[in-house]
Design a protein around this nucleic acid. Structure first.
Length: 416
RNA sequence: GGAGAGUUGGCAGAGUGGUUGAAUGCGGCGGUCUUGAAAACCGUUAAGGAUGCAAGUCCUUCCGGGGUUCGAAUCCCUGACUCUCCGCCA
């Protein structure tokens, strides 16, 4: 959520940001409602002040055993007006808030402006595409020959997009998660968190998934709960509505969760095998930092995610997203795309974003500055990494001529 | 799932329907004293909003929502959560 005062002071900037992100929001309505809100607030405050004052007088009279009937009668109508104004004020505030919730974050100034993903900017590459003496197979074929995956029975149990990992495939999945968690915890200094996989509406709103993405998520209607689409949601909201002492920053948390995504309407495009799923596993890094540091930390976090791919020996590239590809809440995002030799494409395995104070304002995550001032923290998060496409890259990169595949040494200790 | 108790400021913990934004203690910050520190003493210490150049003034908030009343932390209804006991269960 953007600060209303910021919107008022930077109207054109916000208007441009909405357009560049292909979003829609009625800023004129916001300004109009805000005017009404302030006027109602002023009237309400004035009447309340009067009521408070006269209440004192009534109390004094009663204490002195004097008659207060006249004052009480007067206040009857004031009381009615206050109720009326309070109701109007609350309606306007709700309406205003509802619109504010649909205004996206403003992109960082250096983010390339673009209308689709073709405007994304490649930042760098690491490693090179591996060479094969044979035609590399795609991950489904490798998985099939080695009995690692069962998409059909996953579909039978639940539906398409719910894979079953079998035997060594399951072990590899678990090893990968374990490896990544331990790596971030030990080498990058993150605190490991194990959090609920189902969250309430307030939490889902705090990180910006709601109201926009309600239809992309699995719901538990009876409780108005949601299955998390990413660990970002429960981990970021861990400190919601709190004021953190300065010495608690920076906060670095890492957690594994399964991720659940309905994403109706995404069928047909790049869905083969493990490329696009309704349930998948992901290790997520989350950081809360002083506003002055967030862009430096963003670069550092990209490095943290890259370190995993490097340790696994997988070729990848780093891409900066253009405004249109940027998520609703993000101000700047880098994607890591790993090379999948059999599929013949780069696949997104990580997305690292700086949300500045957008999420913090929604979720109420603040800290006390050196001079005692209460401010919003900057929140960042990044996948480190999502497993399915990492598995794709591993299977396709380390496949052998005979159809078997080699598990990278670094994962061996987790395979057992 | 059943029964009971509870939810107040950073924490602990008072609170009679009427100067209670809230006693007291702890913690934090500033000061006096001290070579320095501790102790002691003094002062200070919530967040959000409206208005104003500012100093300031005013309003809201005692888990959330609704109600009673001239007036609610205090009374009523309702929801959430926590704790204790019982039941069930991995």
């Amino acid at each position: 959520m953007l600060d209303l005062k910021f919107i008022r002071a930077n109207l054109e900037l916000v208007r441009q940001a909405i357009a560049n992100k292909n979003e829609k929001a009625d800023l004129d309505k916001v300004l109009a409602l805000d005017d009404i809100r302030r006027k109602l607030q002023f009237d309400f405050d004035s009447l309340k002040a009067r009521q408070n004052q006269v209440s004192q007088e009534i109390a004094n009279k009663k204490r002195n055993k004097e008659d207060a009937t006249e004052l009480i009668e007067q206040m009857g109508s004031v009381s009615e007006q206050i109720k009326q104004l309070a109701a109007e004020l609350s309606d306007v505030e709700n309406e205003l808030n509802a619109i504010l919730m649909w205004i996206p974050n403003v992109p960082f100034k250096d983010v390339p402006v673009g209308k689709d993903e073709s405007f994304n900017r490649e930042v760098r590459q690491w490693g090179t595409k591996p060479e094969f003496s044979f035609t590399p197979k795609d991950h489904l074929e490798v998985a099939s020959q080695n009995n690692l995956l069962d998409m059909q029975r996953g579909a039978k149990i639940t539906g398409s997009g719910f894979p079953v990992y079998t035997g060594l495939g399951a072990t590899l999945e678990r090893a990968l998660i374990n490896f990544m968690l331990t790596f971030h915890q030990q080498k990058h200094g993150y605190t490991e968190m194990w959090v609920p996989f189902i969250v309430n509406r307030k939490t889902m709103t705090g990180t910006g998934q709601l109201p926009k993405l309600e239809n992309d998520m699995y719901r538990v209607d009876e409780e108005d709960f949601f299955l998390i689409p990413t660990a970002e949601v429960p981990i970021t909201n861990y400190y919601a509505d709190e004021i953190l002492p300065l010495d608690k920053l920076p906060i670095k948390m890492v957690g594994y969760t399964p991720c659940f995504r309905r994403e109706a309407g995404s069928y047909g495009k790049d869905t083969k095998g493990l490329q696009r799923l309704h349930q998948f596993n992901k290790v997520e890094m989350v950081r809360f930092v002083h506003p002055d540091e967030s862009y430096a930390v963003l670069e550092e976090m990209v490095g943290n995610a890259e370190a995993i791919l490097q340790a696994l020996g997988l070729h990848y590239r780093v891409v900066e997203l253009c405004t249109a590809d940027l998520s609703f809440a993000s101000a700047r995002t880098y994607d890591l795309e790993v090379w999948a030799p059999g599929t013949g494409r780069y696949l997104e395995v990580s997305s690292v974003s700086n949300f500045e104070d957008f999420q913090a304002r929604r979720a109420g995550i603040r800290f006390r500055d050196a001079d005692g001032k209460v401010r919003f923290v900057h929140t960042l998060n990044g996948s480190g990494l999502a497993t399915p496409r990492t598995i794709i890259a591993l299977l396709e990169t380390y496949q052998q001529a005979d159809g078997s595949f080699k598990i990278p040494d670094i994962l061996q200790r987790w395979i057992g």
